[in-house]
């Protein structure tokens, strides 16, 4: 029983990383209509930036996290302005032309940023010094609770709640949804789509960056492989959770983390990924709008 609870906590912490990643990925997909292959590299670069802040500036943990988050956001903004902005309002049929071109330019950035991240870490997998983050093991009775896991879960809950509140319950969020439906109509309604794009790109990069820093610390792996690992699972969370509601992506991310840990513990590791992706396919076919998806869907 204790083992089950321990693994449940492990699964929640792991899933929180997937969730954070999925929230940002889904946000860009829903609002900007971009399938962003470079989204994982933001996580790797955020972790590298946070590590640099610790090593060169001696930044304490909260500042290092902040440095990583801001770096992730700025990088996403940079990529958006160089790779996506020139394509907006150009290219073939609106529904696919923009998405296709942006997919390719995001692949271009994925290749470049991964390669540069390899150079930045000297092709090594680096880690955060043991005294630079909360490493204490707390105990709840017999249950060991690593403080980093608690920090990760808390960060995920805060970020998800914050973004959900912004998207659903603020004027700005209404503008974001308007851009998601139809950029031209949003502009007519007095919303500046440019501002929405910039803020969305930054937020997405920042959440991916948060996942990268926390993941880099808890898995002791700061390298370009960090983002790629998150990408494959975070993507699954977006599909299961649905991209038009951040709560869905968050819940799906956590659920995938728990499922992954439990299937390795009680079934088999080699089937673990198979179970994840089978579930993914099942969701796609049976509930193709995700957990919180709306049945009605307008075709742009």
């Amino acid at each position: 029983m204790l083992l089950f609870v321990e693994q449940l906590v492990n699964g929640c912490a792991l899933g929180s990383l997937y969730a954070l990643f999925a929230v940002g990925f889904g946000l860009v997909f829903a609002t900007l209509g971009i399938l962003n292959a470079a989204h994982g590299t933001y996580a790797s670069w955020a972790a590298i930036a946070a590590l640099a802040a610790v090593q060169h500036l001696g930044a304490p943990f909260p500042l290092a996290v902040a440095a990583g988050v801001v770096a992730g956001g700025l990088l996403a903004l940079l990529v958006d302005q160089i790779a996506f902005q020139p394509l907006r309002g150009r290219g073939g049929p609106a529904k696919e032309g923009g998405m296709l071109g942006a997919l390719i330019t995001s692949i271009a950035f994925w290749i470049m940023l991964d390669s540069l991240a390899g150079f930045a870490t000297g092709q090594q997998s680096l880690n955060f010094p043991a005294d630079s983050y909360p490493a204490r093991m707390l105990h709840l009775g017999a249950l060991p609770l690593p403080s980093m896991q608690l920090v990760t879960i808390a960060a995920m809950l805060l970020a998800t709640a914050g973004i959900h509140a912004l998207v659903r319950h603020s004027r700005f969020g209404a503008a974001m949804r308007a851009v998601g439906w139809n950029g031209a109509a949003a502009a007519l309604g007095g919303v500046n789509p440019r501002v929405v794009i910039v803020v969305t790109a930054f937020l997405a990069g920042a959440t991916s960056g948060l996942a990268g820093v926390l993941g880099g610390i808890s898995t002791q792996n700061v390298s370009f492989t960090l983002g790629e690992g998150l990408m494959l699972k975070g993507f699954a969370a977006v599909v299961v959770g649905g991209y038009d509601d951040v709560r869905g992506a968050a819940i799906a991310g956590v659920a995938l983390g728990i499922l992954e840990v439990m299937s390795a513990q009680y079934l088999s590791t080699s089937l673990r990924d198979g179970i994840t992706y089978a579930l993914l396919l099942g969701f796609l076919l049976l509930r193709p709008r995700g957990l919180f998806g709306r049945a009605a869907f307008l075709r742009a």
């Binding site: 699964g11 792991l14 990383l17 896991q149 690992g229 390795a264 590791t269």
Partner: peptide, 15 residues
């Protein structure tokens, strides 16, 4: 069992 591309080992260690 773990997989070569895995990055999180808390759960296998607990196991």
């Amino acid at each position: 069992s773990v997989l070569s591309s895995d990055t999180d080992f808390t759960a296998p260690a607990t196991q």
